[in-house]
Simulated scan of single mutants.
Amino acid sequence: MNVKMQPEYKPDTTGATLAPVVVPASPETRMNSTDQRLHRQVLQDRIFRGVTRFFAFFVLALLAGIILSLLVGAWPAIKEFGLGFIVNTEWNPVTGKFGGWNSIRGTLLSSFIALLIGVPVSLGIAVFLTELSPVWLRRPLGIAIELLAGVPSIIYGMWGLFVFAPWFADNVQPWLTESTANIPVLGTVFAGPPMGIGMLTAGLILSVMIIPFVSSVMRDVFEVVPAMLKESAYGLGSTTWEVVWNVVLPYTRNGVIGGVMLGLGRALGETMAITFVIGNAQQPISSLFDPSTSISATLANEFTEATTVLHTSSLIYLGLLLFVITFIVLMMSKVLLLRMQRAEGKQS
């Protein structure tokens, strides 16, 4: 009798594992996965757009809130003095008569002096760093200039009051008075006792403060000019001045104007440095050596000492006017840029 024996089972001791069997996903599963991914991407895009829209409208709402709060705070002065507050020169907290022209004039004049001195110096610094300076000197010199932007304004004010103003009164103001005495207009502009502090000193300190900002912006925009354009101009025999004037400045015109506007905004809103050196006098001036005041200096000096509602409201009215001046300046710069762009389109 033949008995068929079953083969003996021996376990695998080699340690090998069986490869997993991959079951292909069905078309329905792949479609569901794709739909989920698309749904997730659409949801993320909606969240992103909503968050960015919220931030944009939040800034507009914040701006509207600032304007509204200034209007509410300045309303008693607006109701009392009206638009005549802008041209009135009287500022007397004792009698309750307030006018903002002295402060407005000081703000505009000091900012104009700062731009008149600071912009050419900044342009020269930017041109030197990008076109003339040795390579090994560009980085340390650029860093040194940018470090001036980090100096607190109160340090500039203290330096201007205790160091610059005495030196300016002893060495520069007498020379300016003597040199311009016989010149019709300049003789009046630079007349007066050399006291050190005054409108001209404030403008000079502001010019030093805006130079780092304007020169940094100009240097950055000059560096983005394609090297091919400058090399082509040099290859045609142009000098460095011709390259800068005919190639670099036209190519970076918008950036240069933006840098100037940045410096102007810095000068218009400066407070502590101006307060130290402008003289803080609510009076008409006949020369740049006379002490004067600005909107920011008036606010810094008198806001904590204002005891009446009308006095406080007049100070807030000055703040509102400073806001309007800054807005007008920015709007004018934008209009200028648009006109320049249109002129370039017509030329092309």
Rank of each mutant, 00 (worst) to 15 (best):
P250A: 10
M218R: 06
I205Q: 03
S232M: 09
M195E: 13
P212L: 10
E223Q: 14
R219M: 12
G237W: 02
R253I: 05
T239M: 08
I183L: 15
P194D: 06
N171H: 15
Y251M: 00
E231S: 08
V208G: 03
I197H: 02
T252D: 00
L206D: 01
T240F: 00
A202F: 01
S238G: 11
M228R: 12
G187E: 04
L200N: 00
E178G: 06
P193Q: 12
L186V: 09
S179V: 07
A202T: 01
V247H: 06
V214W: 09
M228P: 00
V224A: 05
M195W: 07
V185P: 07
V248W: 02
G235R: 03
V225D: 03
S216W: 06
V224R: 10
V217F: 03
I183V: 14
R219A: 10
A169W: 11
E178M: 08
I210E: 02
T239Y: 05
E223F: 03
T239Q: 08
I210M: 09
V248L: 00
Q173G: 05
L206K: 02
F168G: 09
N171A: 14
L236Q: 12
V185C: 02
F213S: 12
A202L: 00
M218F: 14
G198P: 02
S207A: 15
E231V: 02
M199H: 03
V221T: 15
V247S: 08
A181S: 13
W241A: 15
D170W: 07
D170L: 12
V217Y: 03
P184R: 10
V247W: 02
I211S: 01
T177R: 14
L176M: 11
A191R: 10
L204R: 06
E223K: 13
L229T: 00
L186S: 07
M199G: 05
M218Q: 09
A227M: 11
T240I: 03
L204M: 14
S238L: 13
Q173V: 04
L206A: 10
V244R: 06
S179P: 01
P174H: 01
T177K: 15
D170G: 12
V224F: 03
P226A: 06
V214R: 04
M228E: 15
A233P: 06
I211D: 05
T201M: 14
T252M: 01
T188Q: 13
A191K: 11
T240W: 02
P212C: 07
P250K: 11
Y251T: 15
V248S: 13
V225F: 07
L176Q: 05
I210T: 06
L206G: 05
D220S: 15
F168V: 11
V224M: 08
G187I: 09
W245P: 00
W241H: 11
A169R: 13
E223Y: 04
G235P: 05
E223V: 01
T239D: 10
E231M: 04
P174Y: 08
P194K: 12
G237F: 07
I197G: 03
Q173M: 15
L236P: 02
W175H: 08
A233F: 10
V217P: 04
V214Q: 10
M199A: 02
A169P: 14
T240V: 07
N182Y: 12
V172E: 07
V189P: 10
T252I: 01
V185N: 08
S215K: 04
P194Q: 13
S207Q: 00
Y251D: 06
R219V: 01
S207H: 09
T188N: 15
T240S: 14
